[in-house]
Design a protein around this nucleic acid. Structure first.
Lengths: 233, 233
DNA sequence: TCACATTTCTGAACATGTTCAAAAAACTTC
DNA sequence: GAAGTTTTTTGAACATGTTCAGAAATGTGA
């Protein structure tokens, strides 16, 4: 589905070590959270030197870049059957979001940090920034698949921006989930139910010809956000 | 306007030192940005020991808490005349947002970090979290003033949630501004113009009796976000 | 004014993210 | 298979956020 991953290592041995370090890191992160997972602990548990860990990952934050990537892949695989099964936009969106949360759930403990630097333009972790561009593209692509394969009829201008809009929305849901400490994350799932319903209605409303001016204006604003990202890429 | 600031020091001397450290820190932060402003540099320039800086500010991040507070005060003072002068919701909102950006502008360089941990529930910097509650209250209060003094007629349910909604919106604008590197921040000001207009229209639309069900549902969602904050406070 | 308590202040020590020169291992070429 | 090159790996060193025991200064009550 994506051809973005050029090999990061030059030898099989290197590849092996890189994977080892990453797996070890993800284990520790899920177990202890971000702050308490030190680079030294990762290196030690993986049986490599500290410097070696830094050979494969430029910084601790870059490990998280890899996390983005891996969970996205997982989520994608889980979502494909949904696209086979469900044909309405609403049902697709609902399922895909639920799957996203389910995919991330093991990492809730340290997920705060995932978005920690979401707002920092200089951070490599910034999902809007340059370093995250490949993952972001893949992630938005999933919503393109979601929209393009849905039966719902949409105005073309809205249809063009909808994948990106839904991606933004899904980021919002993740943000909610991060702050959600309710049992079994019940709150997040409820919010998903409600907002998906809401979005479905809003789309219907926005598709009304009478709404054209307001819709145009809204979409113009969305485009502005998109441009911003390009500018800092 | 707020009675949230209990003295943090026990003696006049302490108060003086605290202020000195804070001012020095804000100077350096505006000048060099967050990462390049070390606690040692702050202490040195302020002429105190490193440990002393930590006596008054629990951590580097807590310095930013103080920043929130100070810029809010500044923004509030600048906004009061607007509330005298402008009576329409739209005009008030427009001016208040412009003033907010103008207030923050000197700190654009390090502003990324302001919101850096916005998404991290554990961080004291988290504007939704416990530590930031006083500043957040004050900040929302400003939008209460903005709404309650406006002449615009609103459904009561919407009117109740609008201050909080506008506060969220203003956070979004700041997020945009942080990522905006256009000359004179032209983009941000344009986005403010457009979104304020958009919001004004949306409010009109939402006030339409026909929209009642959709409005109710949307407001229910907003309440959910609000509750989330309470839960982690 | 003196003794005691509290607050302010210091400097050293520690933990952790990060860098780097150089050794060891793996790979390539002839 | 040997020489040379590239990649992998190491361990020590550094910078910075943070902590802490205790000294110095300040405030308080008799």
């Amino acid at each position: 589905m994506s051809e973005n991953q050029k090999k990061q290592t030059k030898t099989p041995k290197g590849e092996q070590t890189r994977t080892l370090i990453l797996n070890t890191a993800l284990d520790l992160l899920a177990e202890r959270g971000y702050e308490k997972t030190t680079m030294r602990a990762i290196a030690e548990k993986a049986g490599v030197s500290l410097g070696n860990a830094y050979h494969y990952f430029k910084s601790k934050e870059h490990l998280i870049q890899a996390f983005y990537h891996r969970t996205h892949e997982e989520h994608l695989v889980a979502s494909l059957p949904v696209f086979e099964r469900e044909k309405s936009l609403k049902a697709r969106l609902l399922e895909v979001l639920r799957l996203k949360i389910a995919t991330l759930e093991p990492y809730h403990e340290f997920a705060g940090v995932l978005f920690k630097t979401a707002a920092d333009p200089h951070s490599p972790l910034n999902p809007f920034g340059h370093d995250a561009a490949p993952v972001r593209r893949d992630s938005i692509e999933l919503f393109e698949t979601l929209v393009s394969g849905a039966q719902t009829r949409l105005p073309t201008d809205l249809k063009a921006e909808l994948p990106y809009l839904l991606w933004l929305y899904h980021m919002g849901i993740i943000l909610f989930w991060i702050h959600d400490s309710s049992p079994k994350r019940a709150r997040t799932y409820r919010v998903i139910d409600r907002t998906v319903d809401l979005i479905d209605r809003l789309i219907t409303l926005a598709s009304n010809p009478l709404m054209r001016p307001l819709r145009k204006r809204s979409l113009q604003f969305v485009a502005e956000i998109r441009d911003l990202e390009l500018a800092e890429g």
